[in-house]
Amino acid sequence: MSELSELYQQVILDHNKKPRNFRKLESANHSAEGFNPLCGDHLTVYLNLEDDAVKEISFEGSGCAISKAAASMMTQAVKGKSKEDAEQLFTSFHEMVTSDLDEENVVERLGNLKVFSGVREFPVRVKCATLPWHTMHAALNNEALVSTE
């Protein structure tokens, strides 16, 4: 079960159990909803964007361990970043979980988000990991709804 333990690493299981920034953000000035109609994952990402920087970010919703942990760790990674840096992180994350390229600089940019690299061995789960990111991207760009099917 080695690929499995790659997928369900302790840190992912921990974020699934105790998701960080898991609440509605009262001060949000941007938000978007994300759906994965295939498996029923559903989340809302809230952003407080000031001077093009992510001052606060939170999420709520329901989903599998991968999507929940991805959302939780995304909020930690993106908080305090500029809009541009947040988008760049999304691109790198997406590359990591969809391609075999193990470009060191991509992984380096991602810091502890690299625990999700195991997802690429499970193609049907890629959408679980990227749903929160697509949703954040939508919130940043004032799109209300995304669906990953």
């Binding site: 499995l4 498996c39 329901s62 599998c64 361990a65 929940k68 499970f122």
Partner: peptide, 22 residues
């Protein structure tokens, strides 16, 4: 506290095909 999608993935690793979803 375990989403069916995660159950489905782990079962698949053991060769077990089930449906997970709605």
């Amino acid at each position: 506290d375990i989403h069916p999608h995660d159950i489905g993935t782990i079962l698949d690793q053991e060769g077990i095909a089930v449906r997970a979803g709605h």
